[in-house]
């Protein structure tokens, strides 16, 4: 195979470049005038304006809660098993029987539920695997933190009363 040389026939105007340069300069000058006088731009002034992402956007995780503010998670380990990045770490525990209005539906609870957001690849498999619709990905894309420890989300951080996708 090797290199394929394609030769084109150029006209004299094309060979001098100058006419093409002139056309290019005309376009940029037009854009300059549009930008200067009409303030035409496609910039989103980020902290003030935000882009509206789709409902299916996969951002920061959260764990949904029921009407008693109890997390829906039953520590079934499905999300931890399916996670390709191995970023979910659950420790299961038994729920206190006296304080459990849901009875047999929520016998297990997560003692701790940590998501290492630095490892997470936001694939959304945990959300798909979850039988209780407990873990979900919200539309919040502002995940910046000041220390690496802040990027490991614990249960208290993840438990949120959110409608829909947030």
């Amino acid at each position: 195979m090797g290199t394929v040389n394609i030769s084109r026939k150029y006209t004299a105007t094309q060979k001098t470049y100058l006419w093409a340069i002139f056309i290019g300069m005309k376009i940029t000058f037009k854009r300059l005038l549009q930008g200067f006088f009409l303030r035409k731009n496609n910039t989103i002034q980020y902290p003030e304006e935000r882009r509206d992402y789709s409902q299916r956007f996969r951002g920061m995780h959260f764990i949904s809660v029921d009407k008693n503010k109890t997390e829906n998670c039953t520590a079934c380990y499905l999300c931890q098993t399916v996670c390709p990045a191995e970023c979910i770490h659950i420790i299961a525990d038994e729920r206190d029987e006296d304080n459990n209005p849901d009875g047999v539906k929520k016998e297990k609870r997560p003692l701790s539920f940590d998501i290492d957001a630095l490892r997470c690849c936001f694939c959304g498999f945990c959300e798909e695997a979850c039988p209780k619709d407990a873990i979900k990905l919200s539309r919040n894309y502002e995940l910046a933190v000041t220390t690496r420890d802040d990027a490991i989300y614990d249960l208290d951080f993840l438990k949120r009363d959110v409608k829909g996708r947030g």
Binding site: T28, R31, L32, Q34, N41, N42, T43, Q45
Partner: peptide
């Protein structure tokens, strides 16, 4: 600023 105007930026 000029380059921004030419490229549709701010």
């Amino acid at each position: 600023r000029g380059s921004a105007w030419m490229q549709g930026r701010v």
